[in-house]
Nucleic acid binder design. Structure first.
Lengths: 194, 194, 194, 194
DNA sequence: TCCTAAACGAGACGGTACGTCCTGTCTTTGT
DNA sequence: ACAAAGACAGGACGTACCGTCTCGTTTAGGA
């Protein structure tokens, strides 16, 4: 049996609603006025919040922005349910690509910036975001594998091809994240791991 | 062809050696202390150069950093000569991957930052760097195509898969840019476009 | 006049011991670490007390500091009893000067700050502290006056000379508040008002 | 013979006009909106100047405010020329008192605050301001002394009585800095040192 | 003895000033 | 005219403090 009464922390508890308000404001600012305009001061005054409160919840600007993205994604992205065959993977990828709108794209690019600029944030972002998505994709890919024993190296390559192409187009915006890409990637990966 | 003195601009001419010194210093700073530490002021004083000189040669920080990379690449990367078949493509990719060391990687990541943060620099970087590499790769891929008429959409996907995977690993450093990746990518692309 | 039980306020009564603990801590902090270090937060946590408790007893920082001084003075200063002649005034002044130690001096200086910065506190401090001392001094001075009708203007000057010199040395600490000053002031004032 | 060519410091020299503009703005702010309103940010933006520039010229807010006062005094206070007798001293004191207007008073009180709050500033203020005025007054007092050998202790007391009364009335504003005070002080000091 | 309401410790909250840093431009002297 | 040096305007960052608020806990006095 576990310890019964976990002593609540003393003092006024942090207000989850304040946190949410901040995240919403941050998302709004990033979408409307771009990554750079999402200043800490601006976020604070827009959200009618003290700057100190921002730094109480997040260590620095980058962490706040990341969480703002996760918050946004959580609210707006439908849970994608993929199937067992190539068509399922196609649908899965297409859904992901469609979730990357002009707005989310802006935020995602901003997070790349922070990952590069701030080493500490990089691992945070990788663990909390990138890795999660990789695992999810890996799970999908495994569904269409016939062999019981998957080759980890090939799996890594499969993942990096898909997300690589995605980020590459997301960053440079030279070609769209359309269904054609989703289908082709699905086809290639299917063949690679089967 | 006239050997006549083309009216030289008055005043002291710009010193090419100064320009080189700046680029070297910039590369050094980025490598040793990271992208963020490569401040304009720091670059200037490290290179024993006035800040104005930096802005005379380059419009802003991002352009300087990009040129520093090109300068570095030019000095250290062997011109890659690829062959006509899949083996040739493998070698080509392997050579590119090997050219991305800890140092060049740092710089490349920095340029991504600027591309995202600064719209104007983004197109500059894309035209002067990314597009060039894409064309070079496209040329290589065409060499191993049998069909005279290449499908432009497939070509785009082929390029984005290769460079996408490369940048993806370059940014997040979760897996190495090794020969295994080069070989697998070569194989996939070969099949895709043939 | 009713001796009826005035309905005591319901709820837990305020703890006088808490109040005293706060005042002592405040005095200690100001003395040891200076006026600036006597932050409300620091006072609270040093006294193992909630910040709210401070504001329950005092409206703001300045009022707390003033009361801390009064509290300290009350504890440490002997009631000065002056005589009827110049010698009496000398003794009176000397006693006052001696009561201004390093500790009380620090606090008094802090109260000057608040008086200047905060208009509302200024009148509070003047009424509760400065004026009281002026009246006390006026009483002493009158004792050695022969004439029944004192000149109010001369009295004002006498007071301001004495307390002026005192505060001036207290603030800038360029010369000590010694007996020589007390004697000289007593002599001058005696002559002035006689 | 001294060294001929003192090598000028390299780089753009500091602009004296910028410094003056800042001082004027600071004085204006303090006078119009009070000591507290003279924020560094507000000073900077009012003077159309970067905050960095403020900190280049002065180490902190207090130093800037002090110099603003000195600047103001220098511009607005007539050089007081006193005579050789008591009448001369009376005129001297009256002139000083008159120079302390509502505006300068506000600034002077602000400097007292900083002196108390910031130990480092205190000595700066004492050396650059208080001491200068004391010396000037001492000079005046010596003019009316008959004895060749002045008593340093009495001199100290004379100075502290005059400036003490002045600051005391300046801080608490309970009585005006009028001619009556000047005359009485002059009389007392004359007798004290003769 | 139990109930109730205010005091209490703790600390989150909105707001504001501080002093540092960086970018890109401007202004000197020296070559 | 260019170059080195560094001052300049502007603005973001992260820290500190004030006075208010909101939790869970404690404690007196009235029922």
């Amino acid at each position: 049996m576990s310890i019964e009464k976990t002593h609540a922390k003393p003092g006024r508890p942090r207000s989850e609603s304040v946190r949410r308000k901040i995240l919403q404001t941050t998302v709004g600012l990033m979408i409307e006025r771009g990554y750079k305009a999402a200043t800490m001061k601006r976020i604070a005054s827009s959200a009618r919040v003290g700057k100190q409160t921002l730094y109480r919840w997040w260590h620095n600007r980058a962490e706040l922005l990341m969480e703002a993205l996760l918050f946004y994604a959580e609210e707006n992205v439908d849970t994608v349910l993929a199937g067992l065959d190539r068509r399922g993977l196609e649908a899965f990828l297409a859904a992901i690509f469609q979730s990357i709108t002009k707005e989310t794209g802006e935020i995602l690019r901003g997070l790349i910036v922070e990952s590069i600029v701030d080493e500490a944030f990089a691992s945070l972002f990788f663990e909390n975001f990138i890795k999660q998505r990789q695992k999810r994709l890996e799970y999908e890919i495994k569904l269409l594998q016939k062999t019981a024993e998957p080759d980890p190296q090939k799996m890594g390559i499969a993942i990096d091809i898909i997300f690589g192409a995605m980020w590459y187009r997301l960053i440079f915006r030279h070609r769209p994240l359309d269904n054609a890409l989703a289908n082709e990637l699905a086809a290639m990966v299917t063949q690679l791991v089967s």
